[in-house]
Each structure stands twice: as C-alpha cells, then as structure tokens.
C-alpha cells in the first residue's frame, strides 16, 4: 500500500497544476508500465490517453490525478471486461458446462484446473475432470492427485493415448453421471507448433459429437511472468480454438502480468481468473481495479 501510493504521489506531484504532461512524467509512467510488461505500443496508447485527458481537462488538481491515471489504464481493460465476474458465472442451461483449458508449457493449466474444480465444488456443482494431457511425464498422475484433493472424479486413459478420445470419454461419462461441469486438461504446447495446435481443434470438434455446443469455455492460461510473447500466444490459441476467457497465473510473485492489458484491448477477451499460489484456494476472480493498482506497487 505504502509504496504503491508513493509512485502515484510522485506522478501526481509531477503533473499537478500543469495543463500538459511534461517529459519527466511521461518517462516515469513509461518506466512503470513497461517494467510491468505492458509493452511499448500499449504503453504509448495509455500515455496518449493521459495526454488527451490532461489537454481536455486543462487544469488538474492533485486529487484528481490519481483517479485519472487509474481510470485511463483501467479503461483498456474495462472496454472488454465490461463487468468483473463477481461469481463463478457459468451457463446453468449447459449441462455439462464444458471448459477446455489450453496454454503453452508450464503456465499452470493443471493447477488452475484443480483450483477451479474446488471452487465449483464449493459452489455446489458436480465436477468431473478429463486428463487429456497424455503426453507430459506424469501429467495424468498430477491431475489424479488434484482430483483426490478436491474430491472429484477424473476420467483418464493410459499415457500416450489419443487426447481427443479422453475428452470424448469425459463428456460421455459426464452426461451419464449428470455432472454439471467438465474441465478438460490439455498438454502444454507452444503456439508455433502447427501440428499440436491442430490437435486442439480436433479435441474440440470431437467433444461436439457428445455435447453440440461444447466447449462452452475455452480458457487460455497465461503466466504472469511472461513478456510480450503472451500476445502471440493469445493470437495463435485464439485462431486454433476460439479462446473466450483468460486466466493469469503466478501473480503471487513479483511479475505484474501487464501484458494482459494489451491482450484484453486487442483481442477483446476477458481475464476471468487469477492464480495467486500453488494451493487449492489460490484462485481468485479477476478484479480490474485491483489489478491496475498492483501495477503501481513498488
């Protein structure tokens, strides 16, 4: 809290009483944003907004400035995250509600699934997990341990079997068991590997044979410590699978995850969840105001 206010008050002091923003202020702002992984072009966009705002409002008092800075940055997120998800919002008519989780290697997909399953279970839903990462060493075991922890069923086949077939099985048994939510884990894959990206499209198509409008949610998991490459990840995964929600993990570290500001602005995909630890309860719903505030911490 204290250090966060320091950055704001430093900026505020620099801008207060001026009708234009001078270079020192912009440099300071640029440094804060770029070092949060916001990226050069999004940073320039934000700075333009501030300049416009300052020019339009002419005189700016100290008290208004904090708010303006926050507002303008939040704006880029706000346009696409029109309302923060105040609860786990899933379509109750879709049963099972199918979530397919995708992303590059090691970002936290499997862990996020475990935490998410716990949240759904707590809210009274019946959950089943599908172990469609049949490639990475011990990936199936890892998901089973999460299933045991949470107390939900896991559908799996042998390592090396066809991931699409696991996804298919999972949905079939979810329908048979009357489960409310089915979450499909997939193997980590780098977005520039065409064959692996096509595999995702196939998994998706196969699921539709069981539940025609599945998957209802395609959750792309991004690691908060990732830099500008996250933009390309988002682009390629969206092209292959129509990603419609983002999860930002590892925000309990020092990385700020600022790259999602540009992503949210450019792709119009809302950030839905954040990961703040390795434990079962370390998943939160994304809150844009808190997120923007955290950019200005230390």
């Amino acid at each position: 809290e204290k250090t966060k206010e320091n950055v704001f008050s430093k900026l505020t002091k620099m801008i207060a009483g001026k009708s234009t923003v001078d270079d020192d202020v912009l440099d300071e702002l640029e440094e804060i944003l770029v070092t949060s992984d916001v990226g050069v072009s999004t940073t320039l966009k934000i700075i333009e907004r501030i300049e416009d705002r300052v020019a339009r409002d002419k005189y700016l008092g100290t008290s208004e400035l904090n708010a303006i800075l926050r507002e303008e940055i939040t704006g880029l997120l706000e346009e696409n995250n029109s309302a923060d998800f105040d609860k786990l919002n899933i379509n109750d008519n879709a049963r099972p509600y199918v979530i397919m989780v995708v992303g590059v290697n090691g970002v936290g997909k499997t862990t996020t699934i475990g935490k998410l399953a716990h949240k759904f279970k707590q809210s009274g839903k019946k959950v089943v997990l599908g172990a469609a990462d049949t490639f990475r060493a011990a990936a199936v075991d890892q998901l089973h341990i999460w299933g045991d922890r949470v107390g939900v069923r896991v559908v799996s086949q042998q390592m090396g079997s066809d991931p699409a077939s696991v996804a298919y099985d999972t949905l079939q048994s979810a329908v048979a068991n009357g489960e409310d939510v089915a979450i499909i884990d997939t193997a980590g894959r780098l977005h520039n590997k065409v064959g692996l990206m096509n595999e995702l499209t196939k998994i998706k198509n196969v699921m539709q044979k069981v539940v025609p409008d599945a998957p209802h949610e395609i959750l792309l998991v991004l690691d908060a410590s990732t830099g500008q490459n996250a933009i390309e990840q988002c682009k390629q995964f969206t092209q292959a699978t129509d990603v419609n929600a983002l999860a930002l993990t590892k925000l309990d570290g020092t990385a700020k995850g600022g790259v999602v500001i540009g992503i949210s602005d450019q792709f119009k995909i809302p950030v839905k969840y954040i990961g703040v630890g390795e434990g079962i309860n370390d998943l939160q719903l994304f809150n844009k105001v808190e997120f923007v505030n955290s950019l200005f911490k230390n």
Binding site: D37, T226, G227, Q228, V259
Partner: peptide, 28 residues
C-alpha cells in the same frame, strides 16, 4: 523460461543473491 518478461531481472537477482548460482539455462 525464455518467454519471461521484465521480471526476469528481479528473479535472477534474487536467486543469485541467495544461491550464487554458476550458470543459467534458458528453456522453451
């Protein structure tokens, strides 16, 4: 992870301060 952004310096410095590591491996 070679996809790491601006935080790489903080992390590397903190691990190095603590462990005085002898080398770096860049993955992915």
């Amino acid at each position: 992870d070679s996809m790491t952004g601006q935080d790489a310096v903080n992390t590397a410095k903190a691990f190095n301060d603590r462990l005085d590591f002898t080398g770096v491996v860049l993955t992915k």
